[in-house]
Design a protein around this nucleic acid. Structure first.
Lengths: 342, 342
DNA sequence: TTGTATGCGTTATCAA
DNA sequence: TTGATAACGCATACAA
């Protein structure tokens, strides 16, 4: 019968074989590969030919073992499900980071942190010398991996700033300030009963946006006008707006913590017979496709997604070069985009 | 002045140090770590204590160098920008694959293939023995990385099936069959002038959906009723529908190659004064959030996203165990979800 | 400019 | 059950 035999691992040429093929020593081959200048033109030619003939590719495990670095940066991404579905920024963040890293000769390898899974394998990977540093996206507070990274002393940069990363680098936007600013402008349109659909309060972004909203309202803040939902999604926006309407039918302003939430809220309002922006003004956050898709298009906060990625990458690279994390982190600008929804 | 000094790499304990701390040999430590049964309880206790005391973590580079395998599977994802923004399935595919792999003791490391960047670094990574196999998502035809993977003889599974992966494993849905099926049901509602918004024709999914549409129409197929756009996105749906309407104002049925396209098309139709489904029936593809968000909700094709991920992972693992790729690949079911848009 | 030899941290083989 | 010792593939200090 058909006994499964292990896949015939294609034998890969080594420096040794290239050397004997080219008629030089292993040392010379190694130097040639790494661009050392002490290699004769003659030797270099023979080696190039031998490499092509043998199909040689360097073994990265061996190389990083001896070099004590891997030229790779890990990127941890939490909760890919809700993230990739609802976060319009993630793609640009990834591309920004990837471009910056490869420009510097590093490779970016992403790890998916499945909250349902075990973090142990990831800890082993981070500890194992396979990455020289790490970028962490959307960590939760008290994330076990945060502790691991700190313990390892691994150069790291967080996108966003969970509260427990004292002394570590982060790059983000000032969610508090941005939320406060857009709420103030919403109030400035004359709204009296302004509510918020808050989401993901266990993440820094969610909590800070709520705090900014609260600050903007000051004494007028009414906790019953805050509806907290789990995710940044259209359907959660629907849920949140229904709750708000039930508690306060005379609501005349809504700050939704993301454009997708705002889109859901908008549809609920319209179904319920409210006019936007005449009866109710609504603003979002992200400046994503959702914002322009809505009718009317959403006033919102612009988020510099690619910039977050490049800045985080740069920070890790800097730390690798010995320049420590920026104290207090890096904040990128978040212009307010004013459209017709408020 | 402040001369940046290289980051003080935290010195990490080695097997050697654990051994002398525990008063045993390196071999015994190694056996204890890897769960070999020939370790005395006494030795095991001493070693456990020493590991904790020294904070030892195994060096993966060294391990994979000697073991000739890394216990890691790479996942290549093309074009993260458009993908993460527009593909509602990607998150579930990732999670499905990740779960299956970690269940088998493997770690999944994702690589972003930036079409603007060079593929060379990725080629080096794949060749370097840092991954034992690879899952490829949404490869384009004539993708240079496909050639690399074949040349390396790396165990691989594609999600989707680009035409040039002869002999390699793939898992996907039968886009042709699914597109044909839903088009037939659309025709079954009595539509006479049925058009299609096709997208991403350089990917297998896009081309096959168009082919299925064509097949369903048979002699009634009219190439002027096909509008080809670039991406699976709401805005491209708007563009595509406008083009269609301009060519054929009497159109009464539309198959959009994705739900997001259909959503855009739907809004254009409504703006133009058409009623859905009374004047024009419209169907999508994916069964994503877009489908339920639309008014009326979209009839569409359900895509088993997580299943694609797990199946691809399983296929790579099987190849690692020596059971070759399924000839002809693996196709997952795609039930049609009938709602109100047609 | 080149070759030789050593070591990176593990696992595996073989005696003991 | 354990301990030496030899790989694994590469980079590099040193000698030539």
């Amino acid at each position: 019968m058909c006994v499964p035999s292990p896949t015939p691992r294609r034998k890969r040429a080594t420096v040794h074989e290239v050397a004997s093929e080219a008629g030089v020593s292993r040392g010379t081959v190694s130097r040639a590969i790494n661009g050392d200048r002490y290699v004769s033109a003659e030797a270099r030619k023979a080696i190039d030919a031998a490499i092509i003939k043998t199909g040689y590719v360097p073994n990265l495990a061996a190389r990083s073992l001896v070099m004590q670095r891997s030229q790779a940066i890990g990127l941890l991404v939490h909760e890919p499900h809700s993230m990739f579905v609802e976060d319009p920024n993630i793609g640009d963040i990834l591309l920004g980071a990837n471009r910056e890293l490869s420009k510097a000769g590093y490779l970016m390898t992403m790890l998916v942190v499945d909250s349902e899974g075990d973090t142990a394998p990831i800890e082993r990977y981070l500890s194992g010398g396979v990455v020289d540093g790490v970028i962490v996206i959307s960590a939760r507070r008290d994330d076990p991996l945060t502790a691991v990274i700190r313990r390892l002393g691994l150069p790291a940069a967080f996108v966003g700033h969970p509260p427990d990363i004292e002394g570590m680098s982060f790059v983000g936007i000032d969610n508090h300030k941005a939320a406060e600013a857009i709420t103030l402008r919403l109030i400035g349109t004359g709204r009296k009963r302004v509510g918020m659909i808050a989401a993901a309060l266990d993440r820094d972004s969610g909590a800070d946006r709520l705090a900014g909203f609260t600050a903007a309202l000051g004494d007028d803040f009414d906790p019953t006008l805050v509806s907290a939902v789990d995710l940044y999604s259209y359907s959660e926006g629907v849920r949140g707006m229904r709750a708000l309407l039930q508690r306060e039918p005379n609501i005349d302003g809504v700050f939704a913590a993301s454009d997708s939430l705002a889109a859901g809220a908008l549809d609920v309002l319209r179904e319920a017979g409210y006019r936007v922006p005449e009866d109710v003004g609504i603003v979002g956050f992200d400046n994503s496709d959702w914002a322009t898709r809505c009718d009317p298009p959403l006033s919102t906060v612009d988020q510099p997604a690619a910039g977050l990625g490049t800045s985080a990458a740069r920070s890790v690279l800097n730390q690798l070069d010995g320049v420590g994390p920026e104290p207090g982190g890096i904040y990128l600008d978040t212009p307010i985009i004013w459209r017709d929804s408020a």
